[in-house]
């Protein structure tokens, strides 16, 4: 093509005839090049004729619309805001997010009260299904991560404590850290990743498929029908998962205790139990329950925010996990201060 251009463009003749009789195949790139060349030459005053075009070639030239080639891109409806506008919109989005969550919490509470007053409306099979999904299916990973965390804390503290000969405090440190803080937080983060995201994606897909609309037209309250079983199941299983994680954490610590600290299993257990008070266990379970409510409520709320398309489902699933983890940390900070004063 370049060679043809080199040959034709410098021509000074007033009439240029390009003969296509030998051309067997012309694609749109070549046609466009000839079209441009014809335009350039015409602008210089030459008369350019394309002759002996095959029917296929004519077809290709016929779909080149000169107007379309010079058409300026239209301004899209959104996405052209300045920096200040974007900052404003982002801040508004944070406020809206928060107020949406509060109003969803309200709807959820109303739905819960309705379910308590009419227990027959609770979909028991759904609750069991999500107990299995969020709880039973999560046992292996929660146990594994719990054991590894216990192992790591024991190992790290042993490295420090051995310098002052205080190895005997390792079991206490492990059980204290796990039960007070790490067990509930770690379990909650795992559940947010496993189940919070699943709730958002599930409800979001139902929104896209008009299943939520269908529920509504059949006279069901979507929050009562879809969110209540999920929230209830999560609030039941997360405290249990937390105890499970604590247990495996202590076993993880025990592996280090027995292999590296020369402690017997018996001593390790007695030392572990020494620091654990009933108050700590109870508060840890309360925390786990609150985290569970946050994770599942945020997951469901984000699902209901999906409007259309697969991209929306992805976006809201991500934001379900991120918001849940953020709220878990905020709630944990509040608990830390609250329990300090209660004690």
């Amino acid at each position: 093509m370049e060679e043809i251009k080199k040959e034709i463009l410098p021509q000074k003749a007033s009439t240029i005839v390009i003969d296509f009789s030998g051309v067997t195949y012309l694609d749109s790139i070549a046609a466009l090049a000839f079209f441009q060349m014809q335009k350039d030459l015409t602008r210089r005053g030459a008369d350019v004729q394309l002759i002996h075009l095959s029917n296929e070639a004519k077809g290709i030239f016929s779909v080149i619309h000169p107007d379309a080639l010079e058409h300026q891109p239209l301004k899209p409806l959104g996405g052209n805001e300045g920096f200040t506008q974007k900052v404003g919109q982002a801040s508004m989005a944070v406020v809206r997010d928060f107020s949406d969550f509060i109003s969803f919490t309200g709807e959820l509470l109303v739905a819960f009260f309705h379910t308590i007053r009419n227990p027959r409306t609770l979909r028991g099979a759904d609750v069991l299904f999500y107990v299995q999904r969020a709880g039973v299916d999560g046992l292996p990973i929660v146990g594994l991560i719990g054991a590894l965390i216990g192992l790591i804390i024991a190992f790290m503290s042993f490295l420090q404590l051995k310098m002052i000969g205080a190895n005997i405090y390792v079991p206490a440190l492990v059980s204290f850290a796990l039960i007070k803080e790490l067990g509930p937080i770690m379990t909650a983060i795992l559940v947010a990743g496993r189940s919070g995201s699943a709730y958002a994606a599930e409800i979001g897909t139902m929104m896209v498929n008009e299943e939520v609309d269908a529920l509504q037209t059949m006279g069901f309250d979507p929050v009562r029908f879809l969110a209540v079983p999920k929230v209830l199941a999560t609030v039941i299983v997360v405290p249990i998962l937390t105890i499970y994680a604590d247990f495996f954490g202590i076993i993880g610590g025990m592996i280090i205790g027995v292999t590296s600290l020369d402690l017997t299993i018996q001593t390790y257990i007695t030392q572990s139990l020494k620091t654990i008070k009933l108050f700590d266990v109870v508060t840890s379970l309360i925390k786990a329950g609150v985290f569970a409510a946050l994770i599942s409520a945020i997951g469901c709320q984000k699902g209901f925010e999906v409007r259309e398309g697969a991209q929306d489902v992805g976006r809201f699933t991500t934001s379900a996990v991120v918001n849940a983890i953020f709220m878990i940390v905020v709630a944990d900070s509040i608990f830390a201060i609250m329990f300090y004063y209660i004690k």
């Binding site: 139902m206 498929n209 008009e210 299943e211 609309d213 269908a214 037209t217 059949m218 006279g219 069901f220």
Partner: peptide, 25 residues
């Protein structure tokens, strides 16, 4: 109502889909 996408509940069988309004009302 028949929605554009049919909007059958994908987690349920056809029987459960049809039974839902029947059981409720």
């Amino acid at each position: 109502v028949l929605f554009q996408s049919s909007a059958l509940f994908s987690s349920m069988t056809l029987k459960e889909n049809i039974a839902l309004p029947l059981e409720e009302y």
